[in-house]
Amino acid sequence: MTVPIIYYLGLSALLFALGSVGLLLKRNLLVQFMCVELMLNAANLAFVAFSQGRADGSVIVFIVMAVAAAEAGVGLALVVVLFRNRNSLDSEDFRLMKG
């Protein structure tokens, strides 16, 4: 039995929305970062769902995962630098520039 594709898609959309809402609500840099990862993975889930029975879709998923990993590396490094400089993980502390 196969789960209808729509469920996957629904879940993926939910995760995506969750990620974006989390971004808007959470002030912690790490949480924000995780929300972004969530969004990326939601997209990935959609790919997996669409590529049911197709090899190339699955290949894409792997490529995306690789890319996301690279991004995570850079992102975490940035978080570390920010924390070192400011001793804070609150994103509202980083509002030097505006207007």
Binding site: F16, L23, N44, A46, G75, L78, V81, L82, F94
Partner: peptide, 22 residues
């Protein structure tokens, strides 16, 4: 640092949108 973080975070979101679009 702040510029980098902002660009990273927002860029990642947009990548997510892009990916979802694909």
């Amino acid at each position: 640092n702040e510029a980098a973080w902002k660009y990273f975070l927002l860029g990642s979101i947009s990548s997510a949108f892009f990916l979802y679009g694909i």
